[in-house]
Design a protein around this nucleic acid. Structure first.
Lengths: 192, 192
DNA sequence: CGACACATGTAACACGTTACATGATTTG
DNA sequence: CAAATCATGTAACGTGTTACATGTGTCG
């Protein structure tokens, strides 16, 4: 619900029309994650359907109809800002998913996978520091770059950890095989 | 496409039927992110529609019909494992979204928001280290906990950075138009 | 004039997710 | 027997996302 929440947040500063929301969103996020204008209108419709926004009764001078928050909308924005962001257990992320599946299925070499990922991550790190050097970036952009740097460093350290714990029984094979190898593998798991 | 990819990866180890995939998924991810069985069947249908899996011609001894990868499916899994995980610019994440929107709209105190988030993050950190102590966790679970620890630490450092850069012109006001109260917001329970 | 930004929308689809319906089999 | 687990599926919804249609105003 990222887009939804973001639009509500922007509307908390006052009535806006669709196109305006798009440009303010771009400005706020520093241009990363370009937002398709159509999505703004779609989301706006859905928000109206759910009673969080409403069109301003009297249209603009130029026929544009700005939207404003309803009371419910205001409450929703406030709640969103108050509620701390979810630090999900995040196995949904692609990287841990890959690592766990590689470890579980034994169809790919975990060490190779980890090695690749680490190499890519370190390259990313270099790109990021290069980006940070350039002075043309605005504040939002720079903050996001910093976040990516910290995140990538954490990811690399995690990959080290994974290797440390999983590399034990993994042969240093060069060629990977992803093939159907049937193996009676009755794993029972008890949910906590 | 996390679920989709994960199921394909599991099927790379050999034909499986729906229920089996669910339990293996749970086992592989250590039980975090419980997967609704229905979703397995839904995803399986979509995968069949797209030509990545197919039901095994001869049903099981007990009438269950396992699915297996097609050639396209095998190629897809291999490609998934080969392709390094997307390190997205990730402004879609809730935390940076909140911070950037707060900074952009000036309807909430950024410092308060950052303070809250940091407090929550540090509480999470404590919960996580407590969880790590317990010996009942399997490998997958422990790896994910470690990842969350590293990630949370990175997030905290980022919040420090944000404060450093944004706190300049931000008055220590207590209430704004959209309140950002500090509720008795004790250590949020980490999903166990 | 032609290109381009402004501005609004719709249709269609993908994926994730939950709730529900329905049975067979096992087990206390 | 009753409850739990195994097992399969469907219906419905929500958000994100893209492609497309359409029109106005502006500026070189």
């Amino acid at each position: 619900m990222a887009v939804r929440d973001a639009l509500l947040a922007l509307l908390a500063a006052g009535p806006r029309h669709g196109y305006q929301l798009r440009s303010e969103f771009d400005a706020a996020t520093g241009g990363a994650w370009p937002l398709n204008v159509g999505q703004v209108y779609t989301t706006l419709q859905r928000l109206e359907r759910d009673g969080f926004v409403e069109p301003v009764p009297e249209p603009d001078d130029d026929g544009r109809t700005p939207y404003r928050l309803t009371d419910a909308g205001h409450r929703d924005v406030a709640a969103w800002f108050d509620r701390p962001a979810e630090h999900s257990m995040a196995p949904r992320d692609e990287l841990p998913m890959k690592v766990l599946m590689a470890a579980a299925t034994d169809t790919v070499s975990v060490t190779e996978l980890v090695g690749n990922e680490r190499r890519v991550a370190m390259a990313t790190l270099q790109d990021l520091t290069a980006l940070k050097q350039r002075p043309d970036a605005d504040l939002a952009r720079r903050l996001q770059i910093d976040r990516m740097v910290l995140r990538t460093e954490a990811e690399i350290r995690w990959l080290d950890l994974v290797e440390e714990r999983l590399a034990v029984a993994d042969p240093p094979a060069l060629s990977r095989r992803v093939s159907a190898r049937v193996e009676p593998n009755p794993s029972k798991e008890v949910r906590s």
